[in-house]
Amino acid sequence: MRSVPLSLTLAAGLVFLVVAAGFTAVDSRAAHDPSPVGLPGFAGVQNLDVEALVDHRQGVMRAVSGHMAASAAILLDGAPFEDRISLHGTALAGLLTDIPDLFPEGSAHDESDARPEIWEDFGTFTDRGQDTMERAAAFGEATQGGNQAEMTQAFIALGDSCGACHDSFRF
């Protein structure tokens, strides 16, 4: 029997490992349930990973929280970063552009605080999201003007809107 050179054996083994790892990775993704969901705002995109959707919207919400906390520190507590407030206002207006799109049908998840009422009463949820979007835009605009009273009033109004939505639609 002809012997196989060691270098060839190692090369074949390496190829096997790479291919096997590839299959394992594909299986692993399939195993964590890429439940197909329809995205009303993204026609043509029909199959997405729910976990990825939840990761994205939670990331957006954390970003919103960060800008809200920073804005509160500047506007309500006097942190000396008035020149940065428009950055936060613009970011909030951008991040809260279309909240309902972040919650497509079928994107409930164990790791999410989203209540099922979102999809049971999507009309009300959409109205609340629209309200938040408008208030975020108003806050963003107010921060461009730089008037302290107007910025503060717009900030409070935006916070009220966040609370109103969480009241009904978040655990």
Binding site: M61, M68, A72, G159, G163, H166, F169, R170
Partner: peptide, 12 residues
């Protein structure tokens, strides 16, 4: 106001 130290708002 419902806002926590992280800038998140109370729910439920």
């Amino acid at each position: 106001f419902g806002m926590d130290p992280d800038g998140d708002f109370a729910g439920g």
